[in-house]
Amino acid sequence: MEPPAPPGASNEPKYGGYTRFELELELVQAMGNPQYLNHLASRKLLSNPSFIAYLDYLQYWSRPPYIKYLTYPGPALKNLQLLQQEKFRQDIISPDFVQALTVEGMRATVEWHRENQT
């Protein structure tokens, strides 16, 4: 499947009122949220071969011209990268792991720019 065209093309088919571009953008960014990944894992999607292939396909978001549309680029791309690993796909079902990821993410959010200051 080819990545959808970036916004601008008006004749894109719509799914529930949204283009494939919009839906996939939303999905990739939502996957920055560890709890959402846990939700996906709990629905057995992360062990589904089709979904794994889809995750591989979604990596087009890490390249131009798509990358500039991400408004949560850090967590979204990091998690997309991690999701390519089978171990991560298995581990994310654990609530402790999700919690650790969340805490780590929150800590990093506050600390990364403080390090630059000092």
């Binding site: 939303e26 920055g32 949220n33 709890q35 959402y36 929150m106 959010t109």
Partner: peptide, 9 residues
């Protein structure tokens, strides 16, 4: 949070 929160999703 540096990611979309549950409400957004």
């Amino acid at each position: 949070y540096a990611w979309p929160i549950e409400g957004d999703v």
